[in-house]
Nucleic acid binder design. Structure first.
Length: 320
DNA sequence: CGTGTTTGACCGGCGC
DNA sequence: GCGCCGGTCAAACACG
């Protein structure tokens, strides 16, 4: 079977010298596909390296991983920690000479009860003001409430640069060696005050050209890259940010947007997906993003449908 | 001086 | 209890 690609070959698309490999900024399927609705055998040509659901759990994040590969489909529900996540990712075979994009979607976001470590730390400060709490000293005992995480999602990107630009400003706060991997994992936190979004960046050791980026939490502010503007003026990425039209990153994203949109159209057509026919039951594929969008706070995110907003008829994307 | 990175130490969960 | 490991802290440092 002829193998088609959902993602754009970075080198082919833009030339490796013009831009760093930012193709991951487009995530055409981010939050878009409900794989439970899709006959995975029909997706055999896709090069989705992994789809991860980091939906929050009462205690530790539980990860359900779906791998969709040629002639291989698995659904894994790891036990109680995040180890299996990276393992699954790392088990993905390398696919040289092709870009790969994967995405994951978060389920219902129980964001009101989620409490970050920073929040807890602030509370600790309040409760124990006057106490010295330098790092060298023992930190105050935490309460028995266990740590809860924000919803997370991860994706894999073929890229030469580790830290992919996404329109937000990040401050690196740590780097750790990863077990069974020669590549370190970097930890970033959004620099905006009161925004506790974090992301981890690591390189797959099975395919060093693949960068695994994991986002945790949701931005409580617009992208600082954009001065302002509505969606119509700029190009919205899938993280709720909108980039101004003249922005270099925006232009780049728009270029890839067009490229990948065409790929998506071709792919859907070859699959027999009547993407312009709302009467098909296959349209259920597109419903999850809308559901997710309604769970996000930012207007930009609400309106952002990524590639689907151009491929899928607008009435399919409307709130019902 | 403000901002961001580096890096060793610390913390907490987990398995044995 | 101990060690491993992922995640975080924060002092030191670099840079514009």
């Amino acid at each position: 079977m002829e193998k088609k690609e959902m993602a754009v070959k970075t080198e082919d698309a833009i030339g490796s010298s013009s831009f760093p490999c930012y193709n991951s900024n487009l995530y055409p399927f981010s939050n878009a596909f409900d794989f439970s609705e899709v006959d995975k055998s029909s997706l055999g040509f896709m090069e989705l390296l992994g789809v991860q659901d980091y939906s929050p759990l009462p205690e530790l994040p539980q990860l359900s991983t779906v791998s969709v590969q040629p002639h291989h489909s698995t659904v894994k529900v790891p036990s109680d920690n995040g180890k299996e996540c990276s393992e699954v990712l790392n088990h993905q075979p390398a696919t040289p000479n092709s870009s790969s994009i994967s995405s994951a979607s978060s389920d219902a976001v129980n964001d009101e009860q989620n409490k970050t470590l920073l929040d807890q730390a602030e509370e600790d400060d309040d409760e124990e003001e006057g106490q010295q709490k330098t790092k060298k000293q023992l930190k105050p005992k935490k309460t028995n409430q266990k740590r809860q995480r924000e919803p997370r999602f991860a994706f894999m990107t073929k890229s030469e640069v580790d830290h992919l630009e996404d329109g937000y400003r990040w401050r690196k706060y740590g780097q750790k060696a990863v077990k069974n991997s020669p590549f370190p994992r970097s930890y970033y936190r959004c620099t905006s005050v009161s925004c506790n979004v974090k992301k981890r960046v690591e390189r797959s050791f099975t395919d060093p050209s693949v960068v695994v980026t994991t986002y945790e939490g949701q931005h409580t502010h617009p992208s600082p890259v954009m001065p302002r503007s509505g969606v119509s003026a700029g190009y919205a990425n899938n993280f709720g940010s909108v980039l101004p039209p003249g922005n270099y990153l925006s232009q780049y994203q728009h270029y890839h947007h067009q490229q990948q949109q065409q790929h998506l159209v071709n792919t859907l057509s070859s699959l027999g997906f009547p993407y312009n026919d709302s009467s098909s039951p296959k349209n259920a594929v597109f419903t999850q993003e809308r559901r997710l969008c309604s769970n996000h706070g930012t207007n930009a995110f609400l309106r952002d449908h990524g590639l689907l907003q151009d491929v899928v008829p607008s009435h399919m994307l409307k709130e019902e």
